[in-house]
Design a protein around this nucleic acid. Structure first.
Lengths: 140, 140
DNA sequence: GCTACAGTCTGTAGCAACTACAGACTCAAG
DNA sequence: CTTGAGTCTGTAGTTGCTACAGACTGTAGC
């Protein structure tokens, strides 16, 4: 468990800790091509550096925001593929921006319904709960 | 395929059609205890009525609003027990509302980043694209 | 009555996106 | 040189569906 060149390289558990990512998820992201195959020690241990931390943080953040793995792979291709023109990158960025905005609209719609139904709620022990009624009634 | 007592009973495909639910999903909800085991014809065909329609609509609606199956099971227990207080339902709804709002804030933050970086983009064929730099850097 | 064919039944396999485990190996400390 | 934690691999389980195979049922046409 040496092979540490300096404080700048880390192993899988340390990368997991620093990103609050599950240990196995790192391997999963590697298997599915989102994280690069990291260099290995002579005995086969993965070694990571700061670039892996930021890439993993990006992935986790995007996942948290509801991007699918496939979409994130798209975003990451922008990063990885240096042959793209700025115009292409802009296009794809704007497409993702549109996705994000659509998602916000969706969530705001949900927020509205939840807020309205919760507001109607008396909090008393009545059998007719407006929340349940709202959920069973026809969609807006 | 008779056994129809009147226009008030329906089979699985009809229930699916009326709720825009996938046929197999109904069986899945039954298996996982969200939908009750329906009565059957002599030959084993499931038969449903209006109560099944509203329960299934409730489930689908709640799923659409982002409640997990586990959370919905919780809501349904409140309904089924009859002992539910409106306050309990309100609590759970507001908890979920808080989750949704947090998600919106997150998305608005990434929206800002994406919009700003896309706006900086010249669209020309320059190798140094500001979007790529923004994507790889730390998210605020 | 008989056959064709749509609809239903069951169990099981697949999907995404993880998460957890078993069994073998490695490494640093005591 | 043993112990114990950390790592490796492949594979199985999780959630919330969705799809399929193969058997059975029911109705309509002949």
């Amino acid at each position: 468990m040496t092979d540490y060149v300096s404080g700048r390289t880390l192993q899988r558990a340390e990368l997991a800790r620093r990103t609050s990512c599950n240990l196995e998820t790192i391997r999963y992201y590697e298997k599915t091509g989102m994280m690069p195959d990291p260099p290995r020690t002579a005995s086969g241990y993965r070694i990571y550096d700061d670039s892996h931390i930021s890439r993993l943080r990006f992935i986790l953040r995007a996942r948290e925001l509801g991007f699918s793995v496939e979409q994130i792979r798209g975003l990451l291709t922008l990063v990885d593929d240096g042959t793209q023109t700025c115009a292409e990158v802009k296009d794809r960025t704007e497409q993702h921006l549109a996705d994000v905005r659509a998602k916000i609209v969706d969530l705001q719609r949900i927020e509205k319904v939840l807020a309205e139904t919760a507001a109607q709620c008396s909090g008393k022990d009545v059998p007719e709960c407006p929340v349940l009624e709202a959920l069973t009634s026809e969609l807006p």
